[in-house]
Design a protein around this nucleic acid. Structure first.
Length: 255
DNA sequence: ATGGTGGTCTTACCA
C-alpha cells in the first residue's frame, strides 16, 4: 500500500509543526507540499531526516517553492518544466516506489485577462507537453498539487458568485480537461463523494466557518495506475487548526 | 459597513 498526499502549506517554516503532526497521524508515505516559501539552504532537511523521511525540495524566497517528503527513497528528480523559461519554483517530480509523483503549484492567475492569467495559461500549455512526455516514460503516474482550478461547478460553493473569476474560467477548465484527456482521471471523482467537498477556503470573510470553499487541489491518476487506486480523501481537519494554511491536505491510497 | 485575512527580508504584493 502507498499513501500519497498533497498540501499547499502556505509557508513551511510557519506550518512545520502542523506538517510533522499530520505526517504522523495520517500515516501517509509521500507528502508533496507547495508554497514552502523557503530557500534550499534554509529547508528544515535534518528535522525530516531525523524522523526517517527522505526529502527533496526546490525553493525560493517569499513565494512558491516545492518539496517532497517520503518514507521511501526519492529518485530521478525534476524541478522545472522543460522548454519553459520560468524563475518561479512550481514543479517537483520524482519516482518513489516505482510511481512517478509529479507535484505542482499551478499559477493562481490573479484576474481573468491579466498578465498573470496569461502566464497561467502558458504555464498550463507547457505542463501538457511535459505530462505527455512523463506519461510516456512513466505510465504509473500521479500528478498532484494546487491546480488553482475548480474543474466543475460542483467544486464551487456558489458557482454563480464565481462566474468570471479566476479558478473557474472556461479557459482554465479547458486546460484541466485537456490534461485529463492525456490519460488521467481526477482521482477524487473516481469515487462516490459527498456534495460540497472543498480543499481551499479563503482566509477572508470567515470563509472556512461559513464553508465557502473551492476544490482546487487535485490528485490525477494515470490510466495504468487506476486499478491500484483505492480511495481519494480530502482531510478537512488541518484547515481547522490554529493558524492554519488556507488549503487542506488531499491523499490517495494505492494498493 | 464598499472592508474583511495571512505570509513575506512588510509600509506593497501575492494569494
Amino acid at each position: 500500500m502507498l499513501k500519497i498526499a498533497t498540501w499547499n502549506v502556505n509557508s513551511l517554516p510557519v506550518r512545520l509543526e502542523q506538517v510533522l503532526d499530520w505526517l504522523q497521524h495520517s500515516e501517509v508515505d509521500v507528502l508533496g507540499v507547495q508554497e514552502t516559501k523557503v530557500t534550499d539552504d534554509k529547508f528544515p532537511k535534518t528535522i525530516f531526516e531525523s524522523l526517517g523521511y527522505h526529502v527533496t525540495f526546490s525553493g525560493q524566497k517569499t513565494y512558491n517553492g516545492m518539496a517532497l517528503i517520503s518514507r521511501h527513497p526519492i529518485e530521478s528528480v525534476i524541478t522545472a518544466l522543460p522548454n519553459f523559461e520560468d524563475e518561479q519554483k512550481r514543479v517537483l517530480a520524482a519516482t518513489i516506489q516505482g510511481v512517478r509523483v509529479i507535484n505542482l503549484y499551478v499559477p493562481n492567475g490573479s484576474v481573468v485577462g491579466s498578465e498573470k492569467y496569461q502566464y497561467k495559461l502558458s504555464w498550463l500549455m507547457a505542463l501538457q507537453d511535459f505530462l505527455k512526455a512523463q506519461l510516456n516514460d512513466y505510465p504509473d503516474c500521479v500528478v498532484m498539487g494546487d491546480f488553482n482550478i475548480a474543474p466543475e461547478d460542483r467544486d464551487v460553493h456558489d458557482p454563480n458568485a464565481w462566474i468570471g473569476n479566476v479558478l473557474v474560467s472556461p479557459q482554465e477548465r479547458e486546460a484541466f480537461a485537456s490534461i485529463l484527456s492525456l490519460g488521467f482521471s481526477d482521482g477524487f471523482r473516481l469515487f462516490e463523494q459527498a456534495a460540497g467537498c472543498y480543499s481551499w477556503w479563503d482566509y477572508r470573510q470567515a470563509a472556512f466557518r461559513r464553508d465557502l470553499g473551492l476544490r482546487i487541489d487535485h490528485i490525477l491518476i494515470s490510466d495504468a495506475l487506476k486499478p491500484r487506486c483505492q480511495s481519494v480523501v480530502i482531510d478537512k481537519g488541518p484547515r481547522g487548526n490554529e493558524r492554519p494554511s488556507d488549503h487542506t491536505p488531499v491523499f490517495v491510497t494505492l494498493m
